[in-house]
């Protein structure tokens, strides 16, 4: 982790109609840092991520990437989004394109990079996650875990400075979760800056440099993972963590 702040969010408010989903979020992410966002469902985690790359325009407040405002309009936002990779829960590969074409489409058409160079990058990345043999397959021929790994590669091939993961394992069968999380762990080790929304607590503890606990659209806790998991400060976080552990009731 470096001292440089890559993403800076201040006073972020997001309302849908009369409902306030995010209510004054201040958060800065340093270059090379891995921030995991936790919280009960409906607390605004996904909305927070979507605001980070301008998929949702903020109602109030600012989101800065490298000092430039991520505002949801025009050409500037598409340029900024190229620096922010995002992977979704429902691994949205393009069903009409092969895995290789899924990965190379945006680098070639959006970034206008030469096809050969992009394909070499794609080859290197595909081999890294063990999907090189599947390059000609279509998304429907892949398992959920494979699709999600391909979606991660698709985002990585744009050479982003920041990666956002929105509950990427929530739709997967349990035995496929690990193969996807391992890829993300490896990315963390390579120094990628990431913001991760997840419900996998063990994974969160292993991968995070910092845990953000979100409740009712506010950051309730912002601490080191060990501190958060062993000694959470707020009652809300204590209650939340309790829902993931089971106590033996017999003989007690």
């Amino acid at each position: 982790m470096e001292d440089k702040i890559l993403l800076e969010i201040s006073g972020l408010v997001k309302r849908f109609g009369s409902e306030t989903v995010l209510n004054g979020i201040d958060l800065s992410v340093h270059k090379g840092e891995v921030v995991v966002v936790l919280g009960p469902s409906g607390c605004g985690k996904s909305t927070l991520l979507r605001c980070m790359n301008g998929l949702e325009p903020p109602t109030d407040g600012t989101v800065l990437l490298d000092g430039k405002a991520v505002t949801a309009d025009g050409k500037k936002i598409t340029e900024l989004r190229q620096k922010i990779g995002m992977v979704f829960q429902s691994y949205d590969l393009f069903p009409h394109k092969s895995i290789m074409d899924n990965i190379t489409l945006a680098p070639i058409k959006v970034q206008k990079r030469p096809k050969r160079e992009v394909e070499q990058d794609a080859q290197r990345l595909l081999k890294r996650v063990g999907l090189w043999e599947k390059r000609k397959a279509y998304p429907r021929e892949l398992s959920g875990g494979q699709k999600q790994r391909a979606a991660i590669i698709r985002a990585l091939c744009m050479n982003p400075e920041l990666m956002l993961f929105d509950e990427v394992t929530a739709a997967l069968d349990p035995e496929m979760v690990k193969e996807v999380l391992d890829v993300i762990l490896e990315l963390a080790e390579s120094g990628m800056t990431m913001v991760i929304v997840t419900h996998e607590m063990q994974f969160a503890r292993a991968v995070a440099d910092r845990i953000i606990f979100l409740d009712n659209g506010k950051i309730v806790e912002n601490s080191k993972p060990d501190e958060f998991f062993t000694n959470p400060k707020s009652q809300r976080a204590k209650d939340f963590l309790k829902t993931f552990s089971f106590e033996k009731r017999k003989n007690s």
């Binding site: 998929l55 598409t78 979704f88 590969l93 393009f94 489409l105 970034q111």
Partner: peptide, 10 residues
Amino acid sequence: QYDSAMALGM
């Protein structure tokens, strides 16, 4: 599909 295309900078 729209989201992921736009997230790729399209």
